[in-house]
Simulated scan of single mutants.
Amino acid sequence: MGSSYTATCYAVEQAKGIDARTRRSLIKVKPKAIKQSLVSPYKRGTWYGDVWLVTDRDDGMLLEGGRSDLMVLQVEEHPSSGYLWRFGDLTEAGLTVTADDRASRAGKEHIGGVVMRRVMAEPGAGEGARGRVQFRETRPWQPEAEPLSSLELDIDLSGPVRTGLLPAQRETLLSVA
Rank of each mutant, 00 (worst) to 15 (best):
M1P: 15
G2R: 03
S3V: 10
S4A: 13
Y5H: 13
Y5Q: 08
T6K: 02
T6M: 12
T8R: 12
T8S: 12
Y10R: 05
Y10L: 07
A11S: 04
V12M: 08
E13N: 13
Q14K: 04
Q14H: 06
Q14P: 04
G17H: 13
A20R: 06
R21M: 13
T22C: 11
L26T: 10
I27S: 08
K28Q: 09
K28N: 12
V29T: 15
K30L: 12
K32E: 06
K32F: 06
A33S: 14
K35Q: 13
K35D: 08
Q36R: 05
V39Q: 06
P41L: 05
K43N: 04
K43E: 11
T46A: 03
Y48K: 01
D50N: 14
V51W: 05
W52D: 06
L53M: 08
L53G: 13
D58S: 11
D59P: 10
G60R: 08
G60W: 01
G60C: 08
M61G: 09
L63N: 03
L63Q: 02
E64R: 07
G65R: 05
G66E: 14
R67K: 09
R67M: 07
S68H: 15
D69T: 03
D69H: 02
M71V: 00
V72Q: 15
L73P: 02
V75M: 13
V75R: 10
E76P: 05
P79C: 08
P79F: 05
P79H: 03
S81V: 00
S81I: 01
Y83H: 14
Y83D: 12
R86A: 01
D89L: 10
L90W: 03
L90G: 00
A93N: 07
G94K: 06
T96H: 04
T98C: 03
D101H: 05
R102T: 11
S104P: 11
R105K: 15
K108A: 12
K108G: 13
E109C: 03
I111S: 15
I111R: 15
V114P: 04
V115I: 10
M116D: 09
M116F: 07
M116T: 06
M120Y: 07
A121Y: 01
A121M: 06
E122S: 10
E122L: 00
G128S: 06
G128P: 09
A129W: 01
A129M: 01
G131C: 00
V133G: 03
Q134M: 14
F135L: 10
T138V: 11
T138A: 05
R139A: 09
W141N: 12
P143R: 12
E146Q: 06
S150F: 11
E152D: 09
L153T: 12
L153N: 13
D154C: 07
D156C: 15
D156R: 15
L157D: 00
L157N: 07
P160I: 12
P160D: 02
T163R: 15
G164F: 07
Q169E: 14
R170F: 08
R170A: 12
T172Y: 09
T172A: 11
S175H: 09
V176F: 06
